Simulated scan of single mutants.
Amino acid sequence: MPDICVAICTCDRPAGLESLLDGLARQQGGLRFQVVVVDNGTLSAQGVALERAAAGALSLTYVRLQERGLVAARNRSLALARESGAPWIACLDDDEVPSETWLSALLARARETGADLVYGPVLPDFEVSPPRWAVAGGFFVKTGEIACSSNLLLRTAVLGEDPRDWYQPAFGAIGGEDREFLARLERGGARAATAADALVREHVPAARLRLGYMFQRGLRDGYAEVTLLRQASKAPARLGLSALGVAAKKSGFLLYHLVSSLASSAHFASALADLGTICGIAMCLSGHRRRFYGASGDPAGDDGAAAAACAPLSDRARP
């Protein structure tokens, strides 16, 4: 029985998956781990996955999933990982590469704290030299203080028996599914901790280093906010008031960042994201449907979880 099963979802990123698997093959610490790869892209990544398995570098299971969408892939990967019998499940996105001590650092922190969920930091690996605003604003850095599935160790025992209670289909086209799922686990009693030395690097393509991407990211967050509120309350009046409250708060941030943008371009980027969130809230409330994941026309090619769509843990009691 493995100590950990690493669950990976991939969608039309064969080069990214290859780098990720190479990073897993270099893991140190003597842990016994298996890898499951769930692929629901338009192009099969089976060749990349099986090449690593045939070389003996990894104990790997590859599954081709016809159902599109990130939620379907995530739930299938968790189900396969649970079937492995491993007491722990580690999650990565297919545009990330783990450090050589990634798994051992996550597991050591879990054992040290008794946590059920352990998050690690994700640092950017820019495809091109980034503009000043992208670095100054820290928009592509995840410190491990947010609940994300992009660098996660999960105790298998905290999963419910029914996969329909895991990642929710309502978030399949917009993102934020990890924010809702992990917050729900914590409300159910799961304890969380951060492993500062469990480092992962994320590939950031040039398309994300444009100011227009910040607006699109904010737009997606607006849709995610309304969907989260809709999951919590079915009453239309209460949903509308809560969403307006979020929009009002974002409006305050927008004004602050606009004034501050006179001194820093990073504040202007933040203002665009705030404006996008306000627009996303309004569009979602009005019934305008939009797909951010799984669409071939996605200009950012962003099939992974973004920091802006993750839940802050500032109010969490940490071990």
Rank of each mutant, 00 (worst) to 15 (best):
L154Q: 02
T156E: 12
V141Q: 10
G137M: 02
P130F: 07
T143K: 06
G120E: 03
F140M: 06
F140R: 09
L152C: 11
G120P: 02
E145Y: 12
V118I: 13
V122S: 08
V128I: 14
V122R: 10
F126L: 10
P130M: 10
G144H: 09
S149H: 04
R155C: 06
A147C: 09
V141H: 13
S149I: 02
S150K: 01
L153I: 07
P121K: 02
R132Q: 14
N151S: 13
T156R: 13
V141R: 13
K142S: 14
E145T: 12
L117C: 00
S129E: 15
C148I: 10
P124L: 11
A157P: 07
E145L: 15
E127V: 10
V118L: 02
F140N: 09
A147H: 08
L153V: 03
V118Y: 01
S149E: 02
L153E: 03
G120C: 07
F140D: 11
P121R: 02
P124T: 11
V118D: 06
L123N: 12
R155H: 12
V135W: 03
P124E: 11
K142E: 13
D125P: 00
L117M: 07
E145S: 13
F139H: 08
P131R: 11
A147S: 14
F139S: 01
C148A: 15
G138Q: 04
T156P: 10
F140L: 06
E127D: 14
R155D: 04
I146V: 14
K142H: 12
V118C: 05
V122Q: 06
P131L: 06
A134P: 04
L123E: 14
G138H: 08
A136W: 00
S150N: 11
V128C: 09
W133Y: 02
L154K: 04
F140T: 10
F140Q: 10
Y119R: 00
S150M: 12
L117V: 03
A136V: 11
V135C: 01
E127Q: 15
I146P: 00
W133E: 00
L152K: 05
A147E: 09
P131K: 08
A147F: 09
G144C: 05
D125Y: 10
C148Q: 13
L152G: 04
F140H: 13
G138W: 08
L154W: 08
I146T: 15
V122K: 03
S150T: 14
T143D: 15
Y119A: 12
L154M: 13
A157T: 12
A136D: 15
G138I: 05
P124K: 08
L117F: 00
A136F: 00
V141A: 02
P131A: 04
S149T: 10
L123Y: 15
E145W: 14
P121E: 05
G144A: 09
G120W: 02
A157W: 01
L152S: 05
L123A: 14
K142N: 13
P121A: 04
E127N: 11
T143H: 07
S129P: 00
A134V: 07
S150D: 12
P121V: 04
G138S: 03
S149F: 01
P131E: 07
Y119T: 11
